[in-house]
Design a protein around this nucleic acid. Structure first.
Length: 272
DNA sequence: AGTCGCCTGGTA
DNA sequence: TACCAGGCGACT
């Protein structure tokens, strides 16, 4: 599902709602999200631990537990973390229910089952999922962005923006939106970008992510926040999901191509 | 660098 | 029926 603005929306909500609360019970409806870790260890390690902080790195949520354990949650395409009152019937696609000391439940729901909830011991920076990530996209400086772009000798700009080890937090929606704002064709090779284009792109990335965060993210298909509410940034999309519609800048038709197995949306006139 | 696979479900 | 979907890792 979500990219940085959506995950950050959930992070800040969880921080407000669950920080300082204790996880009094864990109900594993399915082991699938645990990937390789043992269900017994998972439940034993998490039950009766207090949530000390909710952090985020790239698109990964980090639920910090008292005693130094971290729960890493990746929502991938359709994962949700839902905060709600206990319900008699468990909704379809709910995999894990954490009962909290305030009487509420935090549920991990994931229709396509790509997401994970993993226990990470030791320093967070040592975790396999975290250690190779690039700098955070939301507040990347012009200088830092220029440095990491210049370090790349080959490849196309759009797939590079989505590479989490290059830049952390940008996915298919926001790479399209940022490239549109910067006037750069998604197929451009990294090495062909001018200094000014790189600067404009850094600015566009920060701008798009900050605006999307303000709007509570983009609900294209499945994304909802911890209360099950949609984000409203789709209304502000300039190119993503708008193939065949008018470019907000020149009035031409928005195009859509396949790039690296994903769809890329762009204006063939405004983006060079 | 490009394609496939993991899954379920919605839409043309 | 076929194709599409906010991700990403494992293949060739």
């Amino acid at each position: 599902m979500p990219e940085l603005p959506e995950v950050e929306t959930i992070r800040s909500q969880l921080e407000r709602l669950t920080q300082g609360k204790k996880i009094v019970k864990v109900r594993l409806i399915s082991d699938k999200p645990l990937k390789n870790s043992s269900p017994v260890d998972f439940v034993k390690s998490v039950e009766n631990k207090t949530i000390t902080a909710i952090k985020r790195r790239a698109k990964i949520l980090i639920i910090e537990l008292f005693g130094g354990l971290n729960l890493l949650v990746h929502l991938k395409m359709t994962g949700r973390l839902l905060y709600a009152k206990p319900d008699e019937e468990v909704a379809k696609h709910t995999h894990i229910i954490f009962s909290l000391s305030d009487g509420m439940e935090l549920s991990f729901w994931d229709m396509r089952q790509f997401g994970y909830v993993k226990l990470a011991e030791g320093p967070l920076g040592d975790a396999q999922e975290i250690k190779d990530l690039g700098p955070e996209a939301l507040d990347i400086s012009d200088e830092e962005f220029r440095r990491i772009v210049k370090a790349k000798k080959s490849g196309k700009i759009k797939p590079l923006l989505m590479d989490q080890n290059f830049l952390a937090g940008v996915g298919n929606i926001y790479s399209d939106e940022a490239l549109f704002l910067a006037g750069i064709d998604p197929l451009r090779s990294v090495s062909s970008l001018t200094g000014e284009e790189i600067k404009n792109l850094a600015s566009a990335i920060r701008h798009v992510l900050a605006d999307a965060l303000k709007a509570g993210g983009s609900s294209v298909g499945d994304y909802v926040d911890v209360f099950g509410r949609e984000g409203s940034y789709v209304k502000q999309h300039r190119v993503y999901g708008r193939a065949g519609k008018d470019c907000p800048c020149c009035g031409g038709s928005i195009g859509r191509i396949k790039l690296g197995g994903r769809s890329a949306h762009f204006c063939p006139i405004c983006q060079k």
